[in-house]
């Protein structure tokens, strides 16, 4: 219960700071000359993408450790991180095409980066469906862990797909070895947004973890309805 309350506080603060990101991006960051106002979608799209990839990597790591240690806390964390990763992937997959229409002239193209991101999203929807379909907690955790590790292997492919394949998607502007290719005020807004998405991730995962724990307690005391899944 204390954890749930902590998660709510962190999420509340993160949502307030997200308003700050909107204000900073819209009012205090310059308009890019070639892309116009649509470039400002970057301040939501990229931090959401960074935290989608990070969330999925953390799912994979927690899943791998779960298979060795059989600690239910790792499974709970993996489930929480996967769900939050899907939410952020939803932000990426909606803001991306909205940026693509005015800049590329099309909402969607089946290139390596976009297609692999959509595949990752669908894979993790499958991950959550798998979790809700298997009744036995140990079996559910084991199956989900295997899928979680498979999903993690996709992340490097998604990240480096812009280097490996011909793609419409822009090259990384910030996450590259050389300094960021944009003015300081844009870098500050981007980093602020990454920080806020970090806080959102933590707040969401803490709440979702606490919910899983509550669900398990109810299931153990025989009040958990059908006793299936962990949603």
């Amino acid at each position: 219960m204390r954890m749930l309350r902590a998660g709510r506080w962190i999420t509340g603060i993160a949502l307030l700071l997200l308003v700050g990101v909107y204000i900073r991006a819209l009012v205090f960051t310059p308009v890019e000359r070639l892309q116009g106002l649509a470039q400002k979608i970057y301040y939501l799209h990229v931090p959401a993408a960074i935290w989608t990839e990070t969330a999925i990597v953390l799912v994979g790591l927690a899943s791998a450790f779960y298979l060795f240690l059989k600690d239910p806390r790792l499974d709970r964390f993996a489930a929480a991180s996967a769900e939050v990763g899907i939410v952020f992937a939803g932000v990426v997959l909606t803001t991306g095409p909205i940026w693509g229409k005015p800049i590329w002239g099309t909402w969607w193209t089946w290139d390596a980066r976009l297609t692999s991101m959509l595949f990752l999203f669908l894979l993790y929807v499958g991950y959550l469906l798998l979790r809700s379909a298997v009744g036995d907690p140990a079996t559910r955790a084991r199956y989900a862990a295997v899928l979680g590790i498979c999903g993690m292997c996709l992340v490097p492919f998604i990240h480096f797909s812009v280097y490996l394949f011909p793609t419409l998607h822009p090259m990384p502007i910030m996450m590259k070895p050389s300094p960021p290719s944009m003015p300081g005020s844009m870098v500050v807004t981007s980093l602020f947004s990454v920080g806020v998405f970090t806080l959102l991730y933590v707040g969401f995962v803490v709440q979702r973890y606490a919910l899983s724990y509550l669900g398990e307690q109810l299931e153990a005391s025989g009040e958990g309805g059908s006793g299936k899944g962990d949603g």
Binding site: Y22, L26, V31, R33, L34, Q35, G36, L37, A38, K40, I41, L44, H45, T94, T95, I98, W99, K101, P102
Partner: peptide
């Protein structure tokens, strides 16, 4: 500068 503020608002 391209006039595409509507797309930005939609995304936000």
């Amino acid at each position: 500068v391209p006039q595409n503020g509507g797309y930005m608002i939609a995304a936000y």
